[in-house]
């Protein structure tokens, strides 16, 4: 789309007239996204998604089937998340989209553009300003409130898929609360490696009843789901399932008394941009600044940087900003402690 047509169509998700075939065709043949319903999906579909979401909220951690329409995004690229978001968004909402922690990732930008073009919503990169946050594989560092909803994109809906590929068999296991096979899987991991070798997609028990795949968020983010203030909706497009963690629901990672759940560690590392030691860091390899041209050693330099890009930007302004800076009262539990809440300066390893 050229810049001009985009300007013309931005926010023009208009209903298609249904009083006559000619009128409908005239509307559909408009340019760009005009001619599509408000928020792209037709109202029947949005109602179906909302019903599935309500059911998911009523039965925390249970996977609710829904139709999952073909979207103008490829399956596996956030089609479940965008269907859940578009079903919830209204014109007064503010929408934030992040992909692996970054607002500016090209796929996040594409999803944000679809919502902005068809649902006429404001968009933001500031976590605290968003009403709905759609995220791929991260929960933001800043504490979410009871006025916010988090939509997580889900590639694989069932934690039991690891131990049995059959959906029919796993549905039976969920119905019976029979998670023996997963416990054995964890035990075998301990026998093989001395600890539980699960990186992301850590199996978690929701409200003491259903085992849930929390989507490939890092283990770092899993404790944030426990007794949270916000509603989390997990939506899979390709696998056509929606599930949810309602506010103030217990979310407990499976682990053993003598092999506890552990989050990722970054020993001795701090974000090289903002200096944070209490955020999820990712390694980046960059050309060495010393730039020794003939020096093969040190041609690359590995540094660590905050994964949550928008919070990192705030910390660069104010290095002491706690993760619950926008809340009253402060000191809300949210993942590993902030320096303010913990005299050890986040050195919790």
């Amino acid at each position: 789309m050229t810049e001009q047509t985009r300007e013309r169509t931005a926010g023009q998700g208009t209903p298609v007239a249904t009083d006559s075939v000619a009128a409908a065709l005239a509307d559909v043949e408009g340019d760009g996204l005009a001619g599509y319903n408000y928020a792209y999906l037709d109202e029947h579909t949005k109602r179906e998604v909302r019903r599935a979401t309500l059911k998911a909220v009523a039965v925390p951690g249970h996977q609710v089937p829904y139709a999952s329409r073909p979207m103008p995004l490829a399956r596996g690229w956030g089609t479940g998340g965008i269907q859940a978001s578009l079903s919830l968004l209204g014109p007064t909402d503010t929408f934030k989209v992040i992909d692996q922690g970054a607002d500016e990732s090209v796929n996040a930008a594409n999803i944000r553009r679809l919502a902005a073009d068809t649902a006429d919503v404001a968009t933001t990169t500031d976590t605290t300003e968003a009403d709905i946050i759609q995220s791929r594989h991260r929960i933001p560092e800043e504490v979410l409130t009871d006025e916010q909803r988090l939509v997580l994109q889900v590639p694989i809906t069932d934690p039991l898929r690891t131990v049995d590929p059959s959906d029919a068999a796993n549905r039976r296991r969920h119905a019976h609360g029979n998670y023996g096979k997963m416990w054995v899987h964890l035990y075998e991991s301990v026998v093989e490696y001395g600890e539980i070798d699960i990186a992301a997609r850590y199996p978690t028990m929701v409200a003491g009843r259903y085992l849930m795949d929390p989507s490939p968020i890092p283990r770092w983010d899993v404790p944030k789901l426990d007794d949270s203030k916000h509603l989390t909706i997990l939506a899979a497009g390709r696998e056509a399932r929606i599930y949810a963690v309602p506010p103030h629901t217990s979310v407990e990672p499976l682990a053993f008394e003598d092999r506890m759940f552990t989050v990722e560690r970054f020993p001795g590392q701090a974000c090289h941009a903002c200096g944070s030691t209490d955020t999820y860091l990712v390694a980046v390899s960059e050309d060495s600044e010393s730039g020794g041209t003939d020096d093969a050693e040190g041609a690359f330099e590995t540094r660590h940087v905050c994964n949550d890009a928008s919070f990192c930007a705030k910390r660069r302004e104010n290095p002491d900003l706690p993760k619950d800076h926008h809340l009253d009262p402060s000191g809300v539990d949210w993942g590993p402690a902030t320096p303010e809440a913990d005299e050890t300066g986040g050195d919790w390893v």
Partner: peptide
């Protein structure tokens, strides 16, 4: 798509 969050976790 980027997978650096999950890859960091695997590392």
């Amino acid at each position: 798509l980027p997978h650096y969050v999950t890859f960091q976790s695997i590392l």
